[in-house]
Design a protein around this nucleic acid. Structure first.
Lengths: 156, 156
DNA sequence: TTATAAATTTATAACAGTTCTAAATTCATA
DNA sequence: TATGAATTTAGAACTGTTATAAATTTATAA
């Protein structure tokens, strides 16, 4: 047995248990995957990657685990395109940028305390997301890429 | 024939044509609905409401019209919950708040120019959204509502 | 360690929302 | 009014998500 892995299991297990939910095998693997892969994977990507290590893993269990981890604030959902639910293990404030040409998603730093809002008096904010879409430097550079896709922003 | 409606048709038609796309009947009706109903309706709500006035309207046509209007920047999509695509005819900068208890969505003002971000140098931003979730004053007031739903943030 | 009850997972079916297709219709124009 | 291109219709197909019941795993206590 790999001791590094065992230690990691121990840590992840404790981390999950501390939030008041059971550290089931599926939850531990899902959380580890998200902590290792910081590229905002879709549910399907998570499921297929874990299936290699955990034959017999069911899709429903991945959905259940993600919902449980989300409820415990260990991961957070990210929906930048209608029907693509993604997850992120980085729960600290940060923004997400999606390139309309290549589809890549990239984190960026932001200082939410600097944002001036009005009309939220009395609202108890539990979670906030700042999302941006456009063209990443690589795609913006290629004039073609930009003119071809800018007309129809629904293209990914 | 209602002259106010006729005028509105004229205005909407021109508004659509100016962006370079055809002002088809479906697009005009969809845009009028969104300009009148500022409550971020789902595609299904739009479809069902328009079906009353336009028997025979197809769902696909509503999706097509919305995609065309979005490409022309006359409306913008809003996804605050995984599988609920909504649309908004207000394309000026503003934030969206969703109550985790009652599910209501509310606009709020924000000054995006005040937000300090880092790491977006070279990125051509075309669109940005600021989303927030939590409890609206009515729901937050009811201690029960809050304690019942705060534990599981996936509840709506 | 073993027994027990509760929580979780599996496998599959069902469901919902969205996209696709081909034929019919509408639109812009000449 | 005639023409070709764009759009809509109707319905099938597809994808992602949720629901269900039986099997398994987990936490706890004997």
């Amino acid at each position: 047995m790999n001791s590094a892995l065992a230690l990691s299991n121990e840590i992840l297990s404790r981390k999950i248990r501390q939030t008041g939910i059971r550290p089931s095998s599926a939850r531990i693997h899902v959380l580890r995957y998200l902590e290792e892969e910081r590229n905002h994977p879709t549910v399907d990507q998570i499921y297929k990657a874990l299936l290699l290590r955990l034959p017999g893993l069911s899709r429903a269990s991945v959905y259940n685990s993600l919902a449980a981890l989300e409820g415990s604030r260990l991961v957070r959902p990210l929906t930048m395109d209608g029907n693509e639910l993604r997850y992120d293990a980085c729960v600290a404030d940060h923004g997400h940028f999606r390139c309309l040409a290549c589809g890549g998603i990239r984190d960026f730093e932001l200082d939410l305390s600097s944002l001036r809002t009005e009309g939220l008096g009395g609202f108890a904010v539990e979670r906030q997301d700042f999302l941006a879409w456009g063209f990443c430097p690589d795609c913006a550079e290629t004039a073609d890429a930009k003119t071809n896709t800018q007309a129809d922003l629904t293209v990914l």
